Computed example of a mutant assay.
Amino acid sequence: MSVDVVCGKCGAKIANMRMLKSIKDVMRPYNSKCPSCGQTLSPSEFSVDVQKN
């Protein structure tokens, strides 16, 4: 199983995780901003989409 973290504004893939970890840990290297569009990412405002491959 893998999980993609995607920017809600521009749709850019920020990270791909093979093991679940805190969203704060995922955003830390990017200073809580999307590396593509600069949108500030909030750890309290996110949604989850599940797709079967």
Rank of each mutant, 00 (worst) to 15 (best):
F46D: 10
R28V: 07
C7H: 01
C10S: 11
S2P: 00
P29D: 01
M27E: 04
S22C: 09
S32F: 15
T40G: 02
G11N: 03
Q39C: 07
M19P: 00
N31T: 03
A15I: 00
E45R: 13
V6G: 09
M17Q: 03
S36I: 06
V6E: 11
S32P: 00
V50D: 07
G38H: 11
G8Q: 06
P43N: 02
V5H: 05
K52S: 13
G8D: 09
M1A: 08
M17S: 00
V5W: 03
N31E: 15
T40M: 14
I23L: 15
R18L: 11
P29L: 03
V26E: 02
G11R: 06
V3F: 07
A15Q: 03
G11V: 05
V26M: 05
N16C: 07
P29A: 07
N53R: 10
S44T: 14
E45S: 13
I14R: 08
D4T: 00
M27P: 00
Q39L: 05
T40P: 02
D4A: 08
E45N: 13
M19S: 11
V6T: 14
S32G: 06
A12E: 12
N16H: 11
V26R: 02
E45C: 09
N31F: 13
I23F: 06
C10H: 06
V6H: 13
S47I: 10
K52M: 12
A12C: 10
C37Q: 04
V5M: 01
Q51H: 12
S47L: 11
K24V: 08
N53C: 04
C7F: 01
S22Y: 00
S47H: 15
M27F: 15
P43S: 13
V6Q: 11
Y30D: 04
D4M: 05
F46M: 15
S22F: 02
S47V: 09
C34G: 09
G38M: 07
P43A: 08
A15T: 01
M19Q: 08
N31P: 02
Q39Y: 15
A15W: 07
S2A: 06
V26T: 06
A12D: 05
K21H: 10
M27N: 02
F46H: 13
T40K: 14
N53V: 11
V6R: 12
D4L: 14
V5S: 06
Q39V: 08
P35C: 05
S32C: 08
D25T: 03
C37K: 01
